[in-house]
Amino acid sequence: MTTGKEISSPALRINGLAKSFGAKKAVDGLDLLVPAGEFHALLGPNGAGKTTTLRMVAGLLRADAGSVHIYGHDAASAAPDAKKVTAFLPDDPLLYGKLTPLEYLEFVSGLWGVPADAAEKRARELLEWLELWNDRGEYTEGFSRGMRQKLALAGAMIHEPRLMILDEPLTGLDARAARSVKDMLSDYVKRGNTVLLTTHILEIAERLAERISIILGGRIVAQGTLDELRSRAGAAAGAGGGTLEDVFLQLTEPA
């Protein structure tokens, strides 16, 4: 059930988030605000700190400093409440090779406390929509990368989260599956939910994201709508901007 606190709060508020691995600062005082109902893309070159940030938001890594609030719930002190409304899809999701898709979804539903009858109905819908229904009786160990990714996505959606955190969600998907995932994410946001995703495919961010954050060296170096980023990059370059790729390359150019 959605609480008043959740309604009035942004989907995600990150303040001063920091994480180091040894001497290397992976995330360095990162601030980010994602309002509810927004499709937000987090872009950055390899090693910029995208995945580390997402893993801290999802509660998989402990931050050295800073705070994360998901729909008003502190992800550290009220982790179960924050996790209830969140789904995280890593770039290479690990499944159980000896479970079938239905058994996997039954298990995930149990973890998130989804009532059995609702979970069963939703599992069928998701598997049919992701074209995995005919494979529902197979062990996932024989699945291709794309099928595994789709099943993990179904698992992420079975409890109808309000915030989806997706790390490179289209990796390994064929064109048809990628298209249906993109449509699904658009539809999901239209229904008032929030998406935060990282991707190397700039076309996805360009087409789907309402706002884009560009991360470099563990910090957000630019944020805004595509037009805002274009004009900022254009102003810096003394030109009228260009595609997101041009903007991205200009903003992440090594000093």
Partner: peptide
């Protein structure tokens, strides 16, 4: 097999 799934679930 799926520690990430377990760690992101809202259960102690």
């Amino acid at each position: 097999d799926a520690p990430e799934l377990m760690a992101t679930a809202p259960v102690p």
